[in-house]
Design a binder for these strands. Sequence first.
DNA 1: CCAATGGTTCAATCCAAAATGAACAAATTA
DNA 2: TAATTTGTTCATTTTGGATTGAACCATTGG
Lengths: 170, 170
Amino acid sequence: MPPMHRAKAAPARSGLTAFEREVIEHFVEISRALGQPRSLAEIYGLLFISPRPLAMDDLIERLQISKGSASQGLRFLREIGAVRPVELDGDRRVHYEAVAELRRLAGRFLSDQLAPRVAGNERRLARLAERVGELPETHRKHAEARLTMLQSWHRNTRRILPLVIKLLGD
Amino acid sequence: MPPMHRAKAAPARSGLTAFEREVIEHFVEISRALGQPRSLAEIYGLLFISPRPLAMDDLIERLQISKGSASQGLRFLREIGAVRPVELDGDRRVHYEAVAELRRLAGRFLSDQLAPRVAGNERRLARLAERVGELPETHRKHAEARLTMLQSWHRNTRRILPLVIKLLGD
DNA sequence: CCAATGGTTCAATCCAAAATGAACAAATTA
DNA sequence: TAATTTGTTCATTTTGGATTGAACCATTGG
């Protein structure tokens, strides 16, 4: 069969405007700093800048991501309250719009992602406090001092987190 | 030369006490939240709990990490001021001790790791503000509203960062 | 009832960041 | 000077989290 000159590619250039791409890039950068996967940021970013709710299909097509990524990404964003499902009549597909209140977003993120870690740290510090007594005399004093420091740092963190939430959402 | 029966293995079980391991684990958890590689946290953690400065050799042996990791890790920690080189007489190797002032640590981390990103975001927002005018009438209004939001979020962030630093180091 | 559509799940794959270790350089000691 | 010690660099390898896509389920419509 002659090669034909190809339908192979049509790399499907993204169907995103330059403006949209840049807005999305903004969210990608932020999500990196928060240690979240890129596809989440892409989905949220596109919904954020879109003037009307989008269905999963739209996200797959415009962002060129897989069904799996789209489905999982939307689930996560729904769970943390960053995205809200919307029913559009005449279409059985669920559409989504971005929740854009920073206070709510930050609060959810902190309580869902950070709080569990903070709790884990707290437990570990408690364990350490118990065991510091069993240490050989030589190192005990130093270990106790360091442990006190860790506890103080931890208290600082706990104190500041709620404050940050409050300040963010004004 | 006959093989001699060797010093091949002795897998060198970690030479870390349970207590040390747990302290190190604490730092590993924290560094994860900050998106830093595990080996950094291990190095800092061991130095933090060690009552006296350690040489690179010690870190390699006790943490079972490679020379490369140790060297690069120490370089990074030195750069952000988390670790301080110490000269011990009678030993030409450089030893290191942990810098344990939280204020300094947090400040450095924020200004080295976060500030550049924040600056990047700022530039991007400026570009977006320029281009929003060229948008087709239909979407312009919505895009402008969203952009205003992004700018406000950004201002919030800038406002809060220095405050967090101040509050952390009391 | 069957076919088509919308959506989820999860094992396999991909990939970027981290870790390794060999090669190298510089300082030290014998 | 040669041999050893201390440390850095960087090309390769490893690894874990992100992404994919095939298999599957549920609902709707013909």
